[in-house]
Design a protein around this nucleic acid. Structure first.
Length: 434
DNA sequence: TCTGGGGTCCTAGGACCC
DNA sequence: TCTGGGGTCCTAGGACCC
């Protein structure tokens, strides 16, 4: 048996935990640059605001409907998530943290009064964090997700599902007739693993509900769609195909990307952005004790606006693999210079680290294989991580251009935006090396 | 005027090899 | 000029998730 414990309208709930006056009001949390909605309270959903909808399309509701729009505060959400996860872990022996607001609990087979326990955990989470959650219990992860969906809708959309399944929904306690009823009430597109495209293709063949989906032979699901859909079908039929992942798998890639508030046409601000992203990606890399074998940098124009399109990327091999901020920033800037062309209204740039390998293995190899002088300067990076961990992001950072004047002007631009306690240029990056 | 960010997995097709 | 079959590896793109 699996449980899926999931926070309701998570980011909004986090904001409300610290500002109880927001309860009962329509609230939306906005993405970076206040671009679009990434979380909505039930009241905001009732106003018709869609997930991912651009802010400018519903901003008028602030005046006409008392809508409250907040800029995202991911640090706050991360901390509340940690607390919620450690409380959720009390439900059973194994936990997989699936996303910032969801965790699967596994190996629940031997636990008596599971539904009652789930209710108790729910109320404990609420008492200690002010976060509302719903729990789905079932023999497969896909069914646990489905039961979680039922638990949410039964409560907030009266009539959608039987009210008894509100908040906590346990598949094991249902009769076959009830299970069939639940599956028939659930549209195929609401099943975990079925997105918009596949849902449309299924509908063209008359497969509209989760129940219809369970009726497809698994082989047909594989032949006409993919092994992914086959797995989903089997899981809906009660056969567990997706196992619990307790230890997070080592990352395969790390990305840092951002849209600009206003489009950019010149090189210097792009260099600054890309340097910042490479720096942050490098920090994530070192946190996971990894090195990157390649770095990709991209820049593109907005897909929503007319005008000439630009969508280019460059991949730079890192030989030897590295987790050194100076090396990664150098590679990112060199890559950016190689693709940059003036005359485009660029909306977004990003840095991705690829071919990640574990530090331990790499170091083992390096000890024997690497010529002298090719090892990371990890002591320097360690100091940098510690200082920034203690005093805040980018207290000390790497200068990103070879031109000292530009370093100074970048520094001045930063000064205007915020006041760092110390800013130290650790090194100028020799671009040629990257 | 204004449209998120960060991931994973699968598949098809091309290049290359024997 | 004509011409096989099978395998691997890599990459780009599509689809999905939150």
């Amino acid at each position: 048996m699996y449980a899926l414990i999931d926070g309701n309208n998570f980011y909004v709930s986090c904001e409300r935990a610290f500002r109880p006056s927001l309860r009962g009001l329509p609230v939306v949390v906005l993405s970076n640059n206040d671009g679009c909605a990434i979380a909505r309270s039930d009241e905001a959903k009732a106003l018709g605001i869609k997930m991912g909808q651009p802010y400018f399309e519903f901003r008028h509701l602030e005046e006409t409907a008392g809508l409250v729009c907040l800029s995202a505060n991911f640090e706050l959400y991360g901390e509340l998530s940690d607390r919620m996860m450690s409380l959720a872990a009390g439900l059973g022996p194994l936990q997989e943290i699936y996303s910032i607001d969801e965790s699967f609990i596994g190996d629940l087979g031997g636990i008596r009064d599971l539904t009652d326990r789930a209710r108790a955990i729910r109320s404990r989470i609420y008492r200690w964090t002010s976060l509302l959650t719903c729990v789905g219990l079932a023999p497969t992860k896909t069914l646990a997700k489905l039961c979680n969906h039922v638990a949410k809708d039964a409560e907030r959309k009266p009539g959608s599902y039987p009210a008894e399944f509100g908040q906590v929904c346990n598949w094991a306690e249902m009769t076959d007739a009830t299970r069939q009823d639940i599956l028939r009430r659930t549209s195929a597109g609401d099943v975990w693993g079925v997105g918009r495209r596949i849902a449309k293709q299924l509908a063209e063949q008359g497969i509209m509900t989760a129940w219809d989906l369970t009726r497809i032979p698994a082989i047909q699901a594989r032949n006409e769609w993919s092994v992914v859909l086959e797995r989903t079908v089997r899981e809906l039929q009660g056969m567990s195909c997706i196992s619990l992942e307790q230890a997070p798998a080592p990352k395969k890639q790390i990305a840092c990307t951002r849209s600009f508030g206003h489009s950019i046409t010149t090189l210097p601000p792009l260099i600054e952005a890309v340097s910042e992203f490479a720096t942050r990606a490098a920090e994530k890399l070192r946190q996971g004790q990894q090195r990157a074998g390649a770095l990709q940098v991209f820049a593109h124009t907005s897909p929503f606006r007319p005008g000439p399109r630009f969508y280019k990327s460059a991949t730079i091999q890192l030989q030897p693999p590295s987790s050194d901020t100076k090396v990664l920033v150098g590679a990112a800037v060199a890559g950016l210079r190689s693709i940059y062309e003036p005359g485009y209204q660029l909306a977004k740039v990003g840095v991705m680290l690829l071919d990640l390998g574990s530090m331990a293995v790499e170091q083992g190899q390096l000890l024997f294989d690497a010529p002298c002088g090719t090892r990371d300067q990890s002591p320097l990076m360690e100091v940098l991580d510690r200082i920034n961990g203690r005093w805040g992001k980018a207290t000390v950072h790497v200068g990103s251009t070879g031109d000292a004047e530009k370093v100074v002007s970048n520094w001045r631009m930063k000064q205007e935006r915020r006041t760092p306690r110390y800013t130290t240029v650790l090194a100028e990056v020799p671009i040629a090396r990257a």
